[in-house]
Amino acid sequence: MDRVFWTDPYQTRLDSRVVSVTGSEVMLEATILFAESGGQESDRGSIDGFPVIHAEILGPDIVYTLAEPPPFAAGDLVTTLIDWPRRYALMRLHFAAEIVLELYYKAFPGLEKIGAHIAETKARIDFLFEGSIAPTFPDILARFDALVDADAPITSTFSDESALRRFWSIEGFAQVPCGGTHLRRTGEIGRIRLKRKNIGGGKERVEITLVPEIGTSTLFP
Rank of each mutant, 00 (worst) to 15 (best):
S20D: 12
A163I: 02
P109L: 10
V176M: 11
I53K: 13
S159P: 00
E171A: 15
G49D: 10
E29S: 11
T12F: 01
F220N: 13
A107L: 09
I192H: 11
P51K: 11
I208H: 08
T136H: 11
V78I: 13
A150L: 12
L219D: 07
D8C: 06
T22P: 00
Y10N: 08
D145F: 00
T218D: 10
V211M: 13
E29M: 02
D126M: 05
D2A: 01
E36V: 08
W168L: 13
G75K: 10
S46D: 15
Y104G: 03
L164T: 00
K106F: 07
T31M: 01
T186Q: 12
L164Y: 15
P70R: 06
I32V: 15
L81R: 14
T79P: 01
A35Q: 05
T216A: 11
S156R: 08
V26E: 07
V4M: 10
F34H: 12
G187T: 11
A55E: 03
P135T: 05
T216S: 10
D8F: 05
T157K: 15
E36A: 15
D151R: 05
Q40A: 06
I47F: 06
T22G: 07
E204F: 02
L128W: 06
G131A: 10
V148C: 06
R17E: 14
P135Y: 06
D149E: 15
C178Y: 03
R3D: 05
Q11H: 04
D76R: 09
L90G: 04
R196F: 07
F137E: 05
R124I: 07
T31E: 04
K195N: 03
A35P: 06
L183T: 08
S169A: 15
R143F: 01
P51D: 14
P9Q: 09
I62N: 04
I192S: 12
G38R: 06
Y104H: 14
F173D: 02
T7D: 14
K195E: 14
Y10W: 12
E56L: 13
E213L: 04
